[in-house]
């Protein structure tokens, strides 16, 4: 039993790290644009298909395919933002959130129309797991784990060491002052949406690499992503990472300790408990 719990935690660590990538995208968009973009699931799906297109149809290596997943999903997010969500800015965050939900459904069906309903596997060899004692891990998991960590490190560097990254954090923290200091809100919003959507796309491709790309790839993630972001505190990037790790591990432990089909319930339960007990989440913004 001990080894199976450790194994489940290990699986959860990996799936949580992968989950963190789209969760960062989701929370970053919330931090700057102040609305939850529920299209993030479908955008992850678009990333998965863009990556699949690059890898299988165009024969690109995985590294380059990740690039297309990022760019494809990023552009789709930006287009959705400009065409559908932004025009509703005056109606408030709730309308924007509802609009993003609708955008997600439209995008999912565009994917169905373009690629069909079948699952599409990536051109990566399926390898047997590496075993150490009672534990096992797949080489793909290790690779995905590394990609997710690398991406987070890059994002950290971009946010902390570059002028634009600093402006993004400043805008998320205090948009009025940032504007007063000459930051153009439109530019920051566009970059945030592009990067946030791109991260969702890479998240979708990471999941699809381990399984396959299908029109619901991202939809399956959305509840976990949302739960992770709420748990960590909406708008907090470190919060999203920690939230994703916790959600990832809790989901795997559910399989062992409860029943696997309660996974969805766990996501909702986490959201409910956090919103009731500590609405600002683990790393939530300070009041006021």
């Amino acid at each position: 039993m001990v080894s199976s719990i450790i194994q489940a935690l290990l699986n959860g660590l990996v799936s949580g790290t992968i989950l963190a990538v789209p969760a960062i995208g989701f929370t970053a968009i919330f931090a700057v644009l102040r609305y939850p973009n529920f299209a993030i699931g479908s955008l992850a799906t678009i990333g998965a298909y863009a990556g699949w297109l690059a890898n299988v149809r165009l024969g690109w290596p995985l590294e380059a395919s990740f690039g297309l997943a990022f760019v494809g999903a990023g552009i789709a997010t930006l287009a959705a933002e400009w065409l559908a969500v932004r025009p509703l800015e005056k109606s408030g965050a709730l309308m924007m959130a509802i609009c993003s939900l609708a955008v997600g459904i439209v995008l999912e069906n565009i994917v169905r129309f373009a690629f069909g309903n079948e699952a599409r596997g990536f051109n990566v060899p399926l390898m047997r797991d590496i075993r150490f004692g009672d534990l096992r891990m797949s080489p793909q998991q290790v690779e995905n784990f590394a990609v997710a960590l690398l991406l987070m490190a890059l994002l950290w560097a971009a946010l902390n060491l570059t002028r634009m990254g600093r402006a993004m954090r400043a805008t998320a923290d205090n948009p009025d002052l940032a504007r007063l200091k000459g930051v153009q809100p439109g530019t920051v919003a566009a970059i945030t949406v592009l990067v946030g959507g791109g991260l969702a796309g890479i998240g979708g491709m990471l999941v699809a690499l381990d399984t396959a790309a299908d029109p619901l790839t991202g939809f399956r993630l959305i509840l976990s992503v949302f739960a992770a972001a709420v748990l960590g505190g909406l708008g907090s990037i470190p919060g999203a990472v920690l939230g994703a790790l916790i959600i990832g591990m809790v989901e795997e432990l559910t399989v062992l300790l409860l029943a696997p089909n309660y996974r969805t319930a766990i996501g909702f339960a986490v959201i409910l408990i956090v919103l009731t007990v500590r609405p600002s989440g683990l790393f939530g913004e300070r009041a006021g």
Partner: peptide, 22 residues
């Protein structure tokens, strides 16, 4: 401004950097 005149989530060095953003 009177209120919210610093970036609370940024450190002092970064706050100052934002002052010369342009």
């Amino acid at each position: 401004p009177q209120e919210r005149n610093v970036f609370g989530a940024l450190n002092i060095a970064e706050n100052l950097a934002m002052g010369a953003f342009t």
